[in-house]
Amino acid sequence: MSSIETGVRAPSEADAMRRALELGRRGPATGPNPRVGAVLLDPSGDVLGEGWHRGAGTAHAEVAALTDAAERGADVRGATAVVTLEPCNHTGRTGPCSEALIAAGVGRVVVSVPDPNPVAAGGAERLRAAGVDVETGLLADEGRALLGAWLPSVERGRPFVTLKLATSLDGRIAAADGSSRWITSDVSRRHAHDLRSEVDAIVVGTGTALVDDPSLTARNAAGELHGHQPLRVVVGHRDVPDGARLRGPGGELVQARTHDPAEVLALLAEREVRHVLVEGGPTLAAAFLRAGLVDEVHAYVAPVLLGSGPSAMGDLGVATIGGAVRLTTRSVLPLGPDVFVVATVDPHSPTEEH
């Protein structure tokens, strides 16, 4: 049985990969597992089955596509599996996808991105050893984009770190008297809450937790909690008071009793955290930058001048312009009166660790 209507041209493998990428985007953006989509084509190019990974503990995309094909009554022997990520070759919460494809009699596998995870990699080799034709690299840039923070997290062996800043035009996060609500607009704050809902953990220092008393939740425009709430991580040795807003509804509260950013990330990696949002304050932001552990910066900049007050960034140890931490701007988005800038950190910028 085919999902292609009579008279409609069968998709090419590139078309099928675009469809697989579309399917993969239906999966959760958070959690330990990547977004993956898969499409099964018969020898004439018609679609036999489709699937995507719906989250940790559920069927992987390839198995979901095989199940879909079986429910349609389709014969997948000799079929081509078009998959956004190399089929895994290990047993975790589920079995190896490479073995499932071999057992189903699939004759060819087309992959967008090889799996960088040493635990799961090797699926392409296993498939070839079983006589399956394997091609990798189809629409690789699109495949990497689908994987988002998961890919660099696996490649670097630690959570991907986004540093969030919300400042006046002259880099202040509060007025001289300490008042800070609100520098940026409602539009920017709604945008920031949406981004919170797409990360695994939000990290602040104890100073921010005690002075600002944040809730660190992800809420929609109506003020309701998003379905996904990231871990709320407080870095430092001081306790969070029992009556703090961090004790209220939202993600689990985790206290990382250290001042070492590398230890914080190691603790979160043990909890299968892939994407960390560092929100404050200036001392913590500087510590992560000095350690060379910031991958990208999200900056909300309001057209406001304060002239004095606390800066968004603590001491980076920069004595000359040559020691500046350099970033590359990736995108600029107007948000009401504000501007939202996404920039990646130049890995060659001088820091304590580089």
Results as ranks from 00 to 15, higher is better:
Asp15Leu: 00
Thr184Cys: 09
Glu13Gly: 00
Thr208Asp: 03
Gly45Asn: 08
Thr344Leu: 00
Leu21Asn: 06
Pro43Val: 04
Ala29Trp: 07
Arg9Asp: 13
Leu327Glu: 12
Gly55Lys: 03
Ala20Arg: 06
Gly73Gln: 05
Val47His: 09
Glu71Tyr: 07
Leu327Pro: 15
Gly55Ile: 05
Thr217Leu: 00
Ile183Gly: 02
Ala10Asn: 15
Glu62Thr: 06
Val106Pro: 14
Thr30Trp: 13
Gly143Phe: 11
Asn220Ser: 12
Ala302Asp: 02
Arg190Thr: 07
Ala209Cys: 08
Ser188Asp: 06
Arg35Ser: 00
Asp260Thr: 13
Gly31Cys: 04
Thr351Gln: 01
Ile102Trp: 11
Arg196Tyr: 10
Gly31Pro: 13
Leu101Phe: 13
Val240Arg: 05
Gly27Arg: 08
Leu138Asp: 07
Glu279Val: 09
Pro337Ala: 12
Val8Lys: 13
Ala38Thr: 15
Leu327Gly: 11
Thr283Asp: 09
Glu50Asp: 06
Leu316Arg: 09
Thr329Gln: 12
Thr67Arg: 12
Glu142Val: 02
Val345Gly: 05
Gly205Gln: 03
Thr344Asn: 00
Gly307Val: 08
Ala343Pro: 15
Gly92Cys: 05
Ala269Gln: 11
Asp177His: 11
Pro152Gln: 04
Pro249Glu: 11
Gly92Phe: 11
Asp346His: 13
Val83Met: 00
Val339Met: 05
Ala59Val: 00
Arg190Lys: 09
Val273Asn: 07
Leu333Asn: 01
Gly137Ile: 04
Gly280Leu: 01
His237Pro: 03
Leu165Lys: 01
Asn89Phe: 12
Ala29Val: 15
Ala145Asn: 04
Thr320Tyr: 09
Arg156Tyr: 00
Val109Met: 06
Arg189His: 07
Asp15Cys: 02
Asp346Gly: 08
Ala149Ile: 01
Val301Gln: 12
Ala38Lys: 02
Glu263Lys: 13
Ala130Phe: 14
Ile321Phe: 13
Thr30Phe: 15
Val83His: 01
Pro214Gln: 07
Ala324Gln: 11
Asp295Pro: 14
Leu231His: 14
Leu85Thr: 08
Ser308Asn: 12
Ser308Val: 01
Val199Glu: 00
Pro152Leu: 05
Ala222Asn: 07
Asp42Gln: 07
Ile202Arg: 00
Pro241Ile: 02
Leu305Met: 10
Ala129Ser: 15
Ala262Pro: 15
Glu352Leu: 13
Arg72Ser: 08
Leu216Asp: 04
